[in-house]
Amino acid sequence: MSLVERITSFADAKVWYGNLPIESLYTVGIAGEKFFRAIKDRGVIMGSVCPSCNLTYLPPMMYCERCFAELEEWVEVGTKGTVYTYTVVGVSLGGAPLEQPEILALIKIEGAHGGLVHRLGEVKPEETEIGMPVEAVLKPKKDREGSILDIKHFKPA
């Protein structure tokens, strides 16, 4: 069969659906445990510090990827940062238009190496700018479950 005559519809060929019958059960890990407990219990964002490389990892790591030290020192990095870059998402994963476009941003926090990817809220797409100061809005303590979504979004600060 040549390319121009190829089957283009499922109905024209014998096909069937299959899946990978698994679910994934993730652990947050040693560093993740501390990071998410701090958000859940105390509403603070923490980074882990490598004194020899002079880096504060965010999200925190249990080791320094550069010098392989096991990181013992942890600091609060605050809940304020700036928008490093952002996008306005208009369609869902499947390609359908979203009723409410979402603003996704990479947020850098001063003094921290890395950053957090999160939603921006309480701001319109046309008001969003790179370099804009933002701060984390946390869910009420009773609703927090030790997930990155315990941070509802970042809003203009």
Partner: peptide, 16 residues
């Protein structure tokens, strides 16, 4: 059976 560490943390421990 089940480690608390993430995969990359396990990799770090063995590598170190």
């Amino acid at each position: 059976r089940r480690a608390q560490e993430t995969g990359r943390e396990l990799a770090f421990q063995a590598s170190r």
